[in-house]
Amino acid sequence: MPNKENKQKRFVSQGLQDGFPIFLGYLPPSMAFGMMAQQFHWAPWQILLTSAILYAGTSQFVLLSLTAAHSPGWSSVITIWLVNLRHVAYGPALTLAHSQKRRSLLEILSIGWGLTDEVFATVCQPVEHKSRDERIYLLAVAILAYGGWIGGTALGIGVGQSMLHEIPHASYALGFSLPALFLYILVSAVMHQKRWQWQRIKLLFAASILYLILKAAGVGMISILLSALIVSIQGVVSFSRITAGKRGEGVEL
């Protein structure tokens, strides 16, 4: 028994060590969310509740932006589901990374809520420690990351208000925080190993043009979702054509 307890302690300590960089990394963006949401006149309880139950960085800013644009409710919900759709791949990838380990439903429910991009990237690294597939280790990483996100949001609400009061210029500068955040995500999406992905840049250009056309045609807020769906489906069609062509040429994929 003491041996089992020692093992558990080691897994927790390993989890806390691996989760600490995520904790630190989550503080600035969650603080920015807390401050920005206040700029959009959200009540502190709304800001904290969003961070506590949605707990998904990009989509929290997306929700903020859509709410400010008075987007229809169902359209906002579907947009957020689709923005977070990448999470669909994380659980299956973890299963494959952890040698098809069969987990109970309770185990998946308890760990799954905390499976963000950064947590996934940390726990899905090549296994050099046996502990990485242990539930207690995964929980320690997830809880610490969650703490960083909630703590940062609370700090943004608390410190943000006084900062904006003391430095009014900060309020003006915050007007560019959302475009800057989206630009960061876009640069990450179109850069791969320090090279521009021209195919994706073309896709983004097409999405922008389609959105502007639909907007000018008076399609309304659904034009956001519609343009992104059309362009991304077109991307899959091109991909399947390219792969089919390569198969025809006998290129190994």
Partner: peptide
């Protein structure tokens, strides 16, 4: 599809 959809929606939000 996911790789294309996320930046497409982000560019519009931008």
């Amino acid at each position: 599809w996911v790789e294309n959809f996320v930046p497409a929606i982000v560019v519009i939000l931008w």
